[in-house]
Design a protein around this nucleic acid. Sequence first.
RNA 1: GGGGAGAUUCCAGAGCGGUCAAAUGGGGCAGACUGUAAAUCUGUUGGCGCAGCCUUCGGAGGUUCGAAUCCUCCUCUCCCCA
Length: 376
Amino acid sequence: MKFSINTSDKNSNARAGVLQTDHGPIETPIFMPVGTAGAVKAVQIPDLSNDTKAQIILGNTYHLYLRPGLNIIEQAGGLHKFNGWEKPILTDSGGYQVYSLANTRKLNEKGVLFRSHIDGSKHEFTPEGVMDIQRTIGADIMMAFDECTPYPCEYDYAKNSLDLTHRWLKRCIQRFDETDPKYGYNQMLFPIVQGSVYKDLRIKSAEFIAEQNAHGNAIGGLSVGEPHEIMYEMTEVVCNILPKDKPRYLMGVGTPENILESIALGIDMFDCVMPTRNARHGIIFTSEGIINIKNEKWKNDFSVLDANGTSYVDQQYTKAYVRHLFAANEILGGMITSLHNLAFYLWLVQEARKHILEGDFANWKNIMVKKLSSRI
RNA sequence: GGGGAGAUUCCAGAGCGGUCAAAUGGGGCAGACUGUAAAUCUGUUGGCGCAGCCUUCGGAGGUUCGAAUCCUCCUCUCCCCA
C-alpha cells in the first residue's frame, strides 16, 4: 500500500508513479478498463491481461450487489476468484448510479433507496453498507459512497450535496476502520472530491478530502456533460490541493484527449466506459484519430485495422472485415474493437508515462492531442 | 380447362376517393455515447432552383373538382378444383 513517484515532468504537473497493492503494482498514469458487472464487456481475461496490458480493472458495487449478489461472490472467495482476474480491482461505490439512475432512487441523509433496474425491488445503500459490500467483493481499492451531482447543477444543491458527501465520507471511513478484509489481503479506501462546477466548493471539498489522509484520492462529478474547459479548470484547482504523494483518480474520464490533458494537470488514474462502449458501437480510437468502422468508406478498405496498433487484432483483421462484422451484427465485431480500444488506451497511458520519465511529456502531449480527436 | 386472390416507395407490408411522397418493420446512410439500466439510442432514407414544385403506388385508357384508392382492357404472380 505505497505510492511512489518516480519523477515529475518539467513543463507540466504530470507524474509517473507506482502504486503497490497486494495484487501487484500499478504503474501510473494508468487507465482502468470498466467491468461493471464483473466483466469487461466483450473482452476475455487473458486478452485483457496479456494483450491490452491492463493492470487494474473496475467493478461496480451496485451492479454486483444486485447480481450475482454478495452470497455468490463470497462463496466464490471474492471477485478476483469469481471472474479470474488476478491483478488489482477497484470498485465504484454506486455513487455514479445515484446520478445515472436518478429516476429510480430516493436520497436522504441515511443513504439512497434504489429500485433495482433489474426487477424493481428496493435496496437501501448506506455508506456503511457500501463499505461492507466492497469488503465482500474484495476490491483492492474501495470507493467512498458519494452523490455524483448532475450537470447543470444549482449552486445550493451542489453545496448541500457536497456536505452530505462529506458526512457520508466520515461514516465510510469509520466503517472501513472498524472492519477487516475478508480474503487475507489489504484493501484501500479512496474518498471522492465533489462540488460540481463551483471553484469554491471544489476547493472546500479538496481540502476536506486531503485532511483524511487516505491512500489515494478521487475527483468525481465531472465529465457529466459540462464543457471540457470547466472540467479541466476544476481538475486543476483540485489537483493543486490534493496531496502530491498520493495517487489522484479522475473518475469517469474520458476521451484520449481528456486523459492526456488531465495527466498534464496531475492526474494518475482514469476509468471510462468510452473505449468499451464506443467499441461496441463501431468507434475505434487510434493514434491518427477516431474511426467509425461502420462507415461506408471502409467497405473495401483491406488495410489492417490499425497499422500502428499494439493489439494482435490490429494486424489480424482488416477494416473491411470488421465493418462487415458490424453490418452483419456479428458479436466478433464488438470483441475486436473492444480489444483494440483498450489496447490503445493502455498504450496511450504507457506512452505518456514513458514521456514523463524522459521529461518531454508536455511537448509530446500537445502534438498527440491534435491528432487524437480528429475524425478519420 | 374451371374458380379465386393479388401486383404499393430498396425489401416486407399498411393504406382503399381528398388530411398520401404514402403508416409500421427490415435494410441502407449518418450521428450520439465520458465512475455502463447501453451488442444501446437518435436522425435520415423519390427528385429539385426545397415555407413551393415535379415524378411515383404493374401497364394503357376512363369516371371525378380530385384517384395508390372507383371502372374497362392488358401484362404478370400466387392459391384451390379438375
